[in-house]
C-alpha cells in the first residue's frame, strides 16, 4: 500500500517535470522559429509587398530563417562561454570548471 503510494507519487513527479520541460522547449522553439524570424525576415525580405510572394522573396525568407537560427547559435555559444569565463574569474582562478 505504502510502496504503491510512493511509486504513484514518483510517477506524478516525473510527469510534472516532463511537462515543464516540454512546455519550455516548445515556448523556446516557438519564439525561435515563429516570432523572431518572422518579424526579422519579413522586414528584410518583403521590402515592397505585392499581390503574392515572389520567388525571390521566398528564397530570401529561406536564407533569412537559416541565418537567424545560425545567429541564435553563435550568440548562445558566445554568451554561455563568456558567462562561464566570468564565473571562473569570480571564483578567483579556482581550478574547477563548470557548465553554466
Amino acid at each position: 500500500m505504502h510502496v504503491e503510494r510512493v511509486a504513484d507519487q514518483n510517477a506524478r513527479k516525473e510527469h510534472l517535470m516532463q511537462q515543464v520541460r516540454s512546455d519550455m522547449a516548445l515556448a523556446g522553439a516557438q519564439t525561435l522559429i515563429e516570432v523572431l524570424p518572422n518579424e526579422k525576415c519579413f522586414l528584410k525580405c518583403i521590402t515592397k509587398p505585392s499581390t503574392s510572394l515572389s520567388a525571390w522573396e521566398q528564397g530570401c525568407l529561406g536564407h533569412c530563417m537559416d541565418r537567424y537560427m545560425e545567429a541564435f547559435n553563435i550568440v548562445s555559444r558566445t554568451y554561455v562561454q563568456r558567462l562561464s569565463q566570468e564565473a571562473e574569474s569570480m571564483r578567483g582562478n579556482s581550478s574547477s570548471s563548470s557548465s553554466l
Binding site: G28, K44, C60, D66, Y68, E70, F72, V75, L100
Partner: peptide, 26 residues
C-alpha cells in the same frame, strides 16, 4: 532566463550585424 537573454540578444545583434541582404551563408 538564460534562453530569454539569448533570444533578445540575438534579436539586437541581428539588427546591428546583419544589415545587408541574407544569403546562403554569413
Amino acid at each position: 532566463r538564460l534562453q530569454a537573454s539569448v533570444h533578445s540578444l540575438t534579436s539586437a545583434c541581428w539588427d546591428k550585424c546583419v544589415t545587408g541582404s541574407v544569403s546562403s551563408r554569413f
